[in-house]
Design a protein around this nucleic acid. Structure first.
Lengths: 341, 341
DNA sequence: TTGTAGGCGTTATCAC
DNA sequence: GTGATAACGCCTACAA
């Protein structure tokens, strides 16, 4: 079934293609009568404009590219939801790509997006990303770029993040103020900036409240199997310190915290009486485990929404050749206190 | 920063545009020497072909459109993951749209995808979708269309689904064989085909094992607040039947089941001793609640993967003008038996 | 082996 | 108010 084009309409009505085009786009300089005629026929024939032709002509695609480390992830799927909803409201569509935390993939995908002539790019970096030439190349091309969640300091562009250090500082301070003194830390690979910042927040809180930092309370979990690693490390923790050597555990993700919870629950360690547990992210799950988990509320949807808002603004600015000023948005996190602390 | 084009390369090398094009695309009829020259220069200048121009010319975009009811949903984000991974492996990109269970949105989005000249469309229908003209129009246009999860019988296209009726029949049969006789049903709106099928499976199992169907054991939960509605309906259930009038609850989603679990846990009703609980979907969460939930394993990733495999096949067939034969894939579900039953 | 030329469907400029 | 014409950047017969 051949697509029907402006030409077909023009031919049918015995007018020129340009008039048809103008009529359809509501240009003022076409008579009411012909406009009606055109629109009627277009409707009747179910005309659907070919946007790739239009894109070629107008030099923009109304498509934005989004790269995300992993889609199947409560936080990121929220981000994506925020991005897509907001994009659509503004007449943009989203091409979604998943880097799987693979640096080479990230580079390749950025190229694909460039070739696709996307109007802008939203990216959360992989953990591996230490070299930023591919990102610089995007900027040299003049394609607006906004980073979210996992960002690169070295690149001068708008960024939307949370303050990981502060968030974990807040959580740990809360624990301390509640009277907990021996607070274990369950982290993820320090290679990831987010995680190392959360560690910094942990240490800062200890310091500020003059609680000695104890290396033996720090456990690093494998991020690819957080639940079981949380469980196993909780077991290690208790083996080493017993129930009296530790009174709280701060985990850097909810899944780790849930693993810890599981271990405690199955080994007659009462939460929070024997040991309190604090998570990070506020996944739905954290509200339904027993006991419900105190956690850091990480605003994924807002992060997506804000990111694309900024991107869209920069796209507009760059089209108008206005100077674009980069923003750095730090979204507030809050503590969701439940029964585990 | 102006994009660099084939013309620029041609000019620079003093050869024709078509030779450059051929060289870049590895055509056999260009000399080794010029090919090298071209590729070198392209690399040096960081040339990136404009695929929208190419798309216009070749009449395909290597983009497929995906419409999903909701992104922030464990099952669907798995589906999306499967789609995107498989698409990328085959050189396709994905435009992701979210219908939010809104029929008008669905129609509009389908139009957007048509205008965008996507090579194919993957869709899971909204609950509201009772009229299928918009889908027929897609097919009239000759755009390959595959439906997954929520499909329309009336439309003749490939479909990838699970057998909801059988899955719930299996679950309930399992309960019966385990000795449970008073099995409550916690469903979702019967307007949704998936849910009404699950209800049918429930009834079929009862029938087959000659257990009388009892209306008062059926509870319909509000799908927009499953957790609380599961909780509240569990309360209703116990209010009406007490602990002796019911010995199991089959819920049509894991979230409902978790709500039920919560109610039982907080009201000293022992799972599974007093009442067993069975869920549906096998979200991660179901494995970490207390007690771990028996549930139906619903293969989201595979559904996405299979859907796009079929779509890609049909795209190829339609390009080759081969006759395309529609498939109907019913992905197997399994029972994940844990400690709640 | 290389080049010429036409066209994909739309939009924008400029004449009429 | 309308229409002719020239791009946008690439691909591909076909010709040289």
């Amino acid at each position: 079934m051949a697509q029907i084009t402006l030409q077909d309409l023009a031919y049918e009505l015995n007018i020129s293609v340009s008039t048809v085009s103008k009529a359809l786009k509501g240009y003022p300089d076409v008579s009411e009568k012909t406009r009606k005629l055109v629109i009627e026929l277009a409707d009747k024939l179910n005309f659907s404009p070919n946007v790739v032709a239009s894109n070629l002509r107008t030099q923009h695609t109304k498509i934005i590219g989004v790269i995300v480390p992993t889609i199947v992830h409560h936080f990121f799927s929220n981000v994506i939801g925020g991005i897509i909803n907001e994009a659509e409201k503004n007449g943009y569509m989203v091409i979604l790509l998943q880097s799987n935390e693979d640096f080479e993939m990230e580079k390749k995908q950025l190229n694909l997006l460039v070739q696709q002539q996307v109007d802008g790019i939203l990216i959360s970096l992989t953990v591996e990303t230490k070299n930023f030439e591919h990102l610089e190349r995007i900027q040299q091309r003049g394609i607006p770029l906004v980073m979210y969640d996992k960002v690169a300091k070295a690149i001068d562009c708008s960024k939307v993040i949370i303050d990981d250090k502060k968030a974990s500082y807040d959580a740990v301070s809360y624990l301390i103020r509640k009277g907990y003194k021996r607070i274990a830390y369950f982290g993820g690979s320090m290679v990831a900036l987010n995680f190392s910042n959360r560690f910094l927040g942990y240490k800062q809180a200890l310091e500020e409240y003059r609680i000695p930092f104890d290396d033996s309370l720090v456990y690093i979990c494998d991020t690819s199997d957080e639940y079981n690693d949380g469980y196993n490390n909780a077991s290690e923790l208790i083996k080493k310190h017993g129930i009296i050597g530790v009174d709280a555990a701060f985990a850097v993700t909810d899944v780790i915290a849930v693993g810890i919870t599981k271990y405690f629950n199955t080994h007659n360690i009462s939460i929070p009486k024997d040991v309190a547990v604090f998570g990070f992210s506020n996944w739905f799950m954290s509200s339904v485990v027993t006991p419900p988990l105190s956690t850091v509320n990480q605003p994924g949807y807002e992060m997506g929404k804000k990111s694309i808002e900024i991107l869209l603004k920069e796209i507009a600015q760059s089209k108008d050749k206005k100077e674009i000023v980069h923003e750095r948005i730090v979204l507030p996190t809050t503590l969701e206190i439940r029964q585990s602390t």
